[in-house]
Structures are given as C-alpha cells and as structure tokens.
Amino acid sequence: MTDNAPDRVTCAVLIIGDEILSGRTQDTNLRDIARYLGVIGVDLAEARTVSDVLQDIVDALNALRERYDYVITTGGIGPTHDDITADAVAAAFGVELEEHPEIIEMMSKRWGTELNAARRRMARVPVGGALVKNPVQGPPGFTIGNVFTLAGVPSIMRGMLEDVGPRMRGGRPTVSRTVRVEGSGEGVIAAPLEAVAKAHPDMSLGSYPFFSPDGFGSNLVVRSRDPDALAGAVAELIVALKGAGIENVREIEVA
C-alpha cells in the first residue's frame, strides 16, 4: 500500500437467492467478504439481499454500481432455471450473454458428452466481461465494469475472492483498537463516548455490550485509517471514561 492511496474505496454486496430470504440457507458470504475487503483497504458500505426475480436484481445492481466503486454479487450462477444472475448482470449493462469458449473447453474436459444444456448455462458471460478464477471446483465467475459476479457456495466464493482482490483499487486500510469497560452499562459510558466521537468525526466509535456469568460491560471499538490519530483518540477515550468515574477500563487485544 502506498502513502498516496485514496482515503476511501467502497464496495457493496448483492446477495441473490430465495433460499437466503426464506431462511433455508444461512448466509456467511457477507461476513467473509467484509473481512477480506477490510484487509485490502476497501470499505464494505452496503449490503442487500434480493430474491430470484430478474428485474429486482437488475434494479438493485444498477443502484449499487452507480453509488459505489465496486459491487460483488453472490449466488445465482448455477445450472438451474432460477440461476438468473448472469441474465440480470447482462441486462443491467445492456449487453447480450455469450458462452465463453474457455469455460466450454473446461467443461468439455470434465463432462465430455454429459455437457448438457443445464451445465452450459454456467458458461454464459456478458459480452465484454472477463473471467474470475475459481480455484476450488466448477466454472469461474465473471466481472464486467465495476461488478464481480461470484458463486454463492461459501468455499467457492472465498476462492474466487482471491482473484478479485488484486483487481481492486485499494484504499488506506482501516485499523481498530478496543477499550473494554467492565461493570458499567451503556447508560454510564454514553456521555464520554459521545464526547470523543464528536471530537473525532472522521473515526468510527462503536459500543458492543457483553453479558457473562462473570459480569457485564461493553467493548468500545475505535476505527480509523490513521494509526497515530487512532492511538490519540483511544487515550482520550480512556481519560474521558475515568473522568466520568468509570475505573475498570483497559485496552485489550482482539484477534
């Protein structure tokens, strides 16, 4: 990462699939994408989940790709009739779909004469698009414009991410530090936390309560792209908390 890296690069995630909205499948891709993007200095700014309805996907995709630097879609690129993500991406960009010869060649080697119409659906890529490598199994994803279209299967999606990251223009990574307050509720820590937050409007300060058999309290997480400024804000927060009569305060390491 260079010193002149842009301050903020943004990305949205569009999760596609009725199975997510129905609760039949629990999504874990959003968590994994958020963690991956944070490491390369890209902010996950918004996430949406839409059903397998073509126009709903097109509308959501167009809104997100206009607003953010990048969009990652997950799901809907399999062989069944309801896997319509490729159709929606092509419609959003106003282009046709075509069978990518590299995918057809790969499929032919794997399935031979069993390369049926359903499997060939997975070879369709919007005209002008490029492939996203799939190091796990099955056909690759694809990218067009600022959109990366990935599989919904978590292990495959994570593999594809490794090819997406190097194509993104990274920003300055966000770093975080955590102050742990034990034995005091959010009502007590709210005022000093708000005061520090107002003094550092370019930072993110969050309060995350915890409850356990050993006691209760909150973890206060401070995030910034400037490590030196972050250290100063954490020191101010500790002083402000102690100034409010809260003594059981300490910074902790979070893996």
Rank of each mutant, 00 (worst) to 15 (best):
R48L: 13
N248Q: 13
A92N: 13
F211K: 14
F93M: 08
P213R: 13
E66F: 09
D43N: 12
R223L: 15
D202F: 07
A255Y: 06
P140K: 02
I33L: 13
A90F: 15
G128Q: 03
T178P: 08
N62W: 02
A88V: 09
S204M: 10
T149Q: 03
E162Q: 11
P139N: 04
R48N: 03
F211H: 14
T25F: 11
V164K: 04
D7M: 06
L150A: 03
H100W: 14
R169G: 03
T178S: 11
G129L: 07
P101N: 04
D83V: 06
M106I: 00
K198Q: 13
R169A: 09
A199F: 09
D82P: 05
A47H: 14
D52K: 00
L14F: 08
R158E: 13
G187W: 03
D228K: 14
P135R: 03
V254D: 11
V125I: 15
I57L: 09
L97I: 08
A12E: 15
V175W: 05
L241I: 05
P135D: 07
V95A: 11
G206C: 11
A86R: 12
L220Q: 03
N116F: 01
N219P: 04
C11G: 06
P209A: 09
V132F: 01
F142P: 12
L220E: 02
K109I: 05
L230C: 02
D83G: 03
L161K: 02
V254Q: 15
D228P: 14
E105G: 14
A88P: 10
I16S: 02
R119E: 08
G128T: 05
F211V: 14
R120F: 10
E251N: 06
D27G: 12
A244Y: 03
R110T: 11
K198D: 14
G243M: 05
A235S: 14
V13K: 00
G75W: 07
L14V: 13
I104G: 02
M106F: 07
